[in-house]
């Protein structure tokens, strides 16, 4: 009996159905973040197929942002690359993506997808994930009525990405060299 109850309680406690409460404004702010993060992150040159390759902002799984992201990206460029949105039907298509945003909150699926991307030069962005192995390099969290984020600098470093101090200073917490600050 106890064994059965405990995990359910834990699921309820740590994974509230937060997605349903997202306001349109919160989603729009997240879309804007995705477009604005680029100047604060450096990708290895190998991350692009070539100088003319686009900067690809990919969305994995269900997409809560919808056309907000397309509108935010319209006309934007990133370090000389045209920016565009690509929705991934399967994780194996990730080649060419500079950012992958996960519109998924199921921890089992998230963990699996993040494992696939580990070590690749892709900035992973999760939304409201619990801290630990289900959160991406950047993890959005609504704190104090505002959309803020945490940063996993270790995972970024492991993937050859450099995150600027400016972005780190805006994060509500940063995991660095194994410790969370």
């Amino acid at each position: 009996m106890r064994r059965l109850l405990l995990p359910i309680l834990a699921t309820l406690l740590f994974h509230p159905p937060a997605d349903a409460e997202q306001t349109a404004l919160a989603l729009a702010v997240k879309a804007a973040y995705l477009v604005k993060i680029e100047p604060f992150v450096t990708w290895p040159a190998a991350s692009f197929a070539g100088p003319g390759a686009p900067f690809e902002l990919c969305v994995a799984g269900q997409d809560p942002l919808g056309d907000l992201l397309d509108r935010a990206v319209a006309g934007q460029s990133a370090a000389g690359h045209a920016m565009r949105v690509r929705r991934l039907p399967e994780m194996t298509d990730v080649a060419g993506c500079q950012i992958v945003y996960f519109g998924i909150s199921n921890p089992t699926i998230l963990r699996h997808m993040l494992d696939i991307l580990r070590g690749r030069p892709v900035l992973t962005v999760t939304d409201g994930a619990a801290e630990g192995d289900t959160s991406g390099m950047i993890n959005f969290a609504v704190i104090d009525d505002r959309v803020r984020f945490t940063i996993d600098d270790d995972a970024a470093e492991e993937s050859g990405l450099g995150i600027s101090s400016k972005l780190l200073s805006l994060a509500v917490s940063v995991r660095h060299e194994g410790t969370r600050e």
Binding site: T23, V29, V35, K36, R71, A72, V147, K166
Partner: peptide, 23 residues
């Protein structure tokens, strides 16, 4: 500023972090 996603995109990243999103 605020409401449309295009307007949000044109804010600084600090300003984004400062927007209240509660309705």
């Amino acid at each position: 500023a605020a409401q449309s996603v295009e307007q949000l995109r044109d804010l600084s990243i600090e300003a984004l972090a400062d927007i209240r999103v509660s309705s």
